[in-house]
Amino acid sequence: MARPHSISRTLAALVLLALAVVLLASLGRWQLKRADERRATLHTIEAGRVQPPLTLGADVPPAALTPWRPARAVGQWRDDLTVVLENRNHDGRPGFWLATPLVLDASRNVAVLVLRGWVARAVPGQPQPPFPPAPPGEQMASGELVTHVPRLFELWGMGAAATLPPRLPAPDGTFPKVQNLALDDYARATGLTLVPAVLQQLAPDAPGLSRDWPQPSVDYNQNQGYALQWFAFAAIAAIAWLVVLVRAWRRRRAASPD
């Protein structure tokens, strides 16, 4: 007859292996979901970039503001309302993004927020050089539309994050530095009526500014490969569960009388 402790160990092994099957299969399904999300992102980017360039104006219909669509705008920069986005790396180098509004209609205070480019952070121990100013007068900016300023994860437990001042421009004339910037918050602080999209300005680069923007990760094949691995691990755990069950059944039959 099988010993009690042998039965308890067998039951524990069966429970653990069953949990492993469920967990590993769930991880595989999650990777498939991530693959679908990345495939959808790739489709959105490709669909936006094949559209004809959009000229932004005060009365541009929101339906035309397709993400990743080429766009251009003519207006005057409000360099005094520039916001500096911190912790934006480029080719492994720390730096900043400069976000400046381009006023499309001064009479109605309508503007589009433009990501003008990346600026390198000064070497530790050295003062930060002045940020490149936006040129005066009527200017044209061209690039691609995105729905919002790309966000960075904020570790709230590591200390208070810098917040946007309630009113801009700042009284001391400095550019506020924040980690993330929401269009609604920026519109309230500046009093501007913003086009509900952000223009990422593209090449050519300006003096002191790089416009090689990071792109969303769209390698869905990688997620599908990870999903296959997790499902393989789940299958191994399921086979192990069957082996333990069959061996326990055989031991029980061998120990029981005819």
Score class of each variant (00 low, 15 high):
Met1Cys: 01
Ser6Cys: 09
Ser6Ala: 14
Arg9Ser: 09
Leu16Met: 14
Val22Met: 13
Leu23Met: 14
Ser26Leu: 15
Ser26Trp: 15
Leu32Lys: 15
Arg34Trp: 15
Asp36Cys: 03
Arg38Trp: 07
Arg39Asn: 08
Leu42Thr: 02
Glu46Ile: 04
Gln51Ala: 05
Pro52Lys: 08
Pro52Phe: 04
Thr55Cys: 02
Ala58Cys: 06
Val60Trp: 12
Pro61Asn: 07
Pro61Trp: 13
Pro62Phe: 05
Pro62Ser: 06
Leu65Val: 03
Val74Tyr: 09
Asp80Phe: 03
Leu81Asp: 06
Val83Phe: 06
Val83Gln: 06
Leu85Val: 05
Glu86Lys: 11
Gly92Lys: 02
Leu102Arg: 04
Leu104Thr: 01
Ala106Trp: 06
Ser107Asn: 12
Arg108Ala: 04
Asn109Cys: 00
Val110Met: 06
Leu113Gln: 02
Leu113Thr: 01
Leu115Ile: 05
Arg116His: 01
Ala122Pro: 01
Val123Ser: 05
Pro124Ala: 00
Gln126Cys: 00
Gln126Leu: 09
Pro127Leu: 10
Gln128Asp: 03
Pro130Trp: 12
Pro132Asn: 01
Ala134Phe: 02
Gly137Asn: 01
Ser142Leu: 11
Ser142Gly: 09
Gly143Ser: 05
Gly143Gln: 11
Val146Asn: 07
Thr147Leu: 14
Pro150Leu: 10
Pro150Thr: 07
Pro150Cys: 08
Glu154Tyr: 10
Glu154Leu: 14
Leu155Gly: 02
Trp156Leu: 15
Met158Pro: 06
Met158Tyr: 15
Gly159Arg: 09
Ala160Gly: 10
Pro166Ser: 08
Leu168Lys: 09
Asp172Val: 08
Gly173Gln: 11
Thr174Cys: 05
Thr174Asp: 13
Phe175Ala: 09
Pro176Thr: 05
Asn180Trp: 13
Ala182Thr: 12
Asp185Leu: 11
Tyr186Ala: 03
Arg188Phe: 08
Thr190Asn: 05
Thr190Tyr: 07
Gly191Thr: 06
Leu192Trp: 14
Val195Arg: 11
Val195Cys: 06
Val195Asn: 09
Pro196Thr: 04
Val198Ala: 08
Leu202Phe: 15
Pro204Ala: 07
Pro204Gln: 12
Gly208Pro: 12
Arg211Leu: 10
Val218Gln: 08
Asp219Lys: 07
Tyr220Met: 11
Leu228Asn: 11
Trp230Arg: 10
Phe231His: 13
Phe231Gly: 05
Ala234Gly: 08
Ala237Met: 12
Ala238Cys: 06
Ala240Lys: 12
Ala240Ile: 10
Leu242Tyr: 08
Val244His: 07
Val246Ser: 01
Arg252Asp: 09
Arg252Gly: 00
Asp258Met: 12
